[in-house]
Design a protein around this nucleic acid. Structure first.
Lengths: 179, 179
DNA sequence: GTCTATAAATTGATAGAC
DNA sequence: GTCTATCAATTTATAGAC
């Protein structure tokens, strides 16, 4: 992996672990085993690195969700497959955590790619819900269950609330479909 | 308001706006119009202030939810009242945002009061769901919808996803009750 | 491309006078 | 109780040699 790539991967990890405000250029360099000069050669600064990390996050997460949501099966089955994907819940959602960071929210440059990712997911879920004639607002409900599940799990320091939240939502959805 | 109280209120605001990592003692003092010496007289340091702020958050939020969830009306109606309470969505949940902060998650002292608050809410919701014979796991689903709604709203810089998530959840719940 | 030096500002306290 | 001084460490770079 190139120095540049190591810097981006290091930033992705640190953003997830410590947020944007809590991540220092120095920490990024150390984890990437790169020097100060090297980092500033490849990137203009902290924000530039964060942008690259967020864009790579978006690519990865879009690819995963896209595949799950397009698999064969009934609409609700595909949604359940996506919701039940194994996640490192206690580490937080790579995108969701960022949205709580004051400096990311204050910067359209950094917030936009995150907003676009959620917007894409929402659109894809709406299409699938519409196949079954379900209320398309449920796209936001399902996304919220996932993001909120992470929050509850971290508060409790346990993955249990995440699992319960997801299973509860799937059960409600199945009942709504059985008409 | 006493200097001590102003310091706590100042900390509550800053924790919500900027998180724990992003909040400096200096900023707390300036917003509270208190000097350095004054702050360190009343509190042992940043963590001590955060603890006081979190505890006051918990008191306020518990009082609000307690009242809404105990109002007259059917179980699902009471839950809907609580979910539909007007919130300053784009400012984030005073408790939920904190849970994404690396130093709060790393400190049991700071995380515990937050965990207890969610635990209390979960228990209260379970009691209410049980009244209608509903799956008690839905307590976590509903809490997650709320917390996730905040996340989606902040990502989109719009309150719309929050409203859709909540209304979608209420609609599902009403349908599940109509048996 | 990578390295070292330098730096102004901020962070989170402590010390001691009033 | 409140104030000012001081401080070691960190933050986020920039400059310029190699």
């Amino acid at each position: 992996m190139s120095t540049r790539d190591r810097l981006v991967e290091s930033t992705r990890e640190l953003l997830r672990e410590r947020g944007y405000v809590g991540t220092s250029p120095k920490a990024i360099q150390q984890r990437a085993d790169a020097g100060q000069g090297s980092m500033y050669h490849h990137f203009a600064g902290k924000q530039d690195l964060a942008l690259a990390a967020i864009e790579r996050n978006a690519e990865d997460l879009t690819a995963l969700a896209s595949e799950e949501l397009s698999s064969p099966g009934a609409p609700v089955e595909r949604i359940a497959t996506w919701l039940r994907r194994e996640r490192e819940v206690l580490r937080g959602c790579p995108m969701g955590v960022l949205v709580q960071d004051p400096e990311i929210i204050a910067s359209d440059t950094l917030r936009s790619p995150i907003a676009e990712h959620f917007e894409w997911l929402r659109g894809r879920l709406r299409e699938i819900l519409a196949e079954d004639g379900l209320d398309v607002r449920l796209a936001d409900t399902l996304l919220a269950v996932l993001q909120g599940g992470y929050v509850l799990a971290r508060a409790a320091n346990s993955t249990e609330p995440f699992g319960d939240a997801v299973e509860g939502a799937i059960a409600l959805l199945e009942r709504a479909t059985a008409d």
